[in-house]
């Protein structure tokens, strides 16, 4: 088996609908994944992200709409003919097969000889750093190791698309971070087009080429992590990704006036007139000032940064700043708030 002639392919969702009775699991999802790209579908539980992934795998079927892989409609193709590698949440390894045999399973189905299977399985386990445990059974492996084997198994037969369904959600925090970076490294190495589903925004931002934020069966925004964070297209995106303050603002002509007299650029999609500006905690600077209008109500030390809660005109604001700078603040002290001149989204109040 060789990779030649089987380069990465693109995946496209065209107006996918999936109704469960009266519930709209997917409500017109359209999205295109470039060949070789890693796209995360991010959203709260029940937003339809897993449904979308299962439809790509052929484990679920759309009420209407189609899925194109490499430009071809695969909606009617059964799962076992789709050539998709999939990693499940947990416990998906076959318990009666060793790690190597699990990895070789897809190769066996494709008629590969025993020796070649064995060799390829070892290569794949090598890739995920587990070749020493090739002969162990799933119940002898930790949760993180099991997921590595599952990743190796999903990639062993060189699928056209790799699908990951919250593969880290059952793991401990530390293992989760480690394995997340591992997945990205392997994905870059093999170059397979990848769809990754998660509800963890940090995870999505850390490993994706682009992140698709979903809400109520629809795509809210599809963008590179940095853009998603700095230029959210909607209130939902701004509030789901990262922490956000809601500050009263007046918007006009692409500018927004906040905190009385400070002017910052307003993002496209902002409302005109009175509204609320969504401002990141690190976009606010706090300066001690006897004449200031705000008061420090809480200081919470987090190592390199400190979270500062300020009260201003009856509403509370969350600020993140370097701990060194926060040392000059005192609880109950008067402060002045300065907004960084980065674009903000203004939403209806």
């Amino acid at each position: 088996m060789s990779t030649s002639g089987k380069g990465p392919v693109g995946v496209e969702f065209v107006d996918l609908h999936r109704h469960f009775g009266t519930v709209r699991g997917l409500d017109g999802l359209s999205l295109a994944i470039e060949p070789g790209e890693l796209v995360c579908l991010l959203g709260p539980s029940g937003c339809g992200k897993t449904t979308a992934l299962r439809i790509v795998a052929g484990l679920d079927h759309p009420t209407s709409g189609e899925v194109l892989v490499g430009g071809k409609d695969v909606t009617g193709v059964p799962t076992n003919k789709r050539d998709m590698g999939m990693v499940f949440q947990a416990y998906s390894l076959f318990p009666h097969l060793s790690a190597a045999d699990n990895v070789a399973f897809g190769l066996k189905l494709r008629g590969l000889g025993a020796r070649e299977r064995r060799k390829r399985a070892y290569e794949m386990l090598e890739l995920v750093g587990l070749s020493v445990h090739a002969d162990r059974y799933p119940h002898q492996l930790s949760g993180g190791q099991q997921q590595r084997v599952a990743l190796a198994r999903a990639l062993a037969f060189q699928p056209s698309v790799l699908l990951l369904d919250e593969p880290l959600s059952a793991l401990d925090a530390k293992v989760r971070v480690q394995l997340r970076d591992e997945i990205r490294r392997v994905q870059l190495e093999v170059g397979t087009t990848t769809l990754f589903v998660t509800h963890d925004q940090e995870e999505a931002l850390a490993i994706s080429d682009r992140v698709g934020v979903m809400n109520a069966g629809r795509l809210e925004q599809l963008a590179a992590p940095a853009e998603l964070y700095s230029s959210p297209a909607s209130q939902f995106v701004a509030e789901f990704v990262g922490l956000t303050n809601r500050v009263p603002a007046q918007a006009r002509d692409g500018r927004a006036i906040v905190l009385g007299d400070q002017e910052v650029p307003a993002l496209a999609g902002s409302v005109a007139g009175d509204g609320l500006a969504l401002i990141r905690p690190e976009a606010i600077a706090v300066e001690p000032d006897e004449q200031g209008t705000a008061t420090v109500t809480q200081l919470s030390f987090r190592g390199p940064i400190t979270q500062v809660h300020c009260e201003l005109g009856g509403s509370e604001l969350l600020v993140q700043m370097a701990s060194a700078e926060a040392q000059q603040l005192t609880l109950g002290g008067r402060v002045r708030l300065v907004i960084a001149p980065a674009p903000v989204l203004v939403v209806p109040a």
């Binding site: 484990l59 076992n80 050539d83 998709m84 999939m86 998906s92 076959f94 318990p95």
Partner: peptide, 27 residues
């Protein structure tokens, strides 16, 4: 028998029969 085992087998290319003979049966 977990649903994931059947789904995993399917995504790896197993037909219904292959799932029965190679996964569910041995298990």
């Amino acid at each position: 028998l977990r649903a994931q085992w059947r789904e995993a087998a399917e995504t790896l290319g197993a037909s219904r029969l292959q799932y029965l003979t190679q996964v569910a049966g041995p298990l």
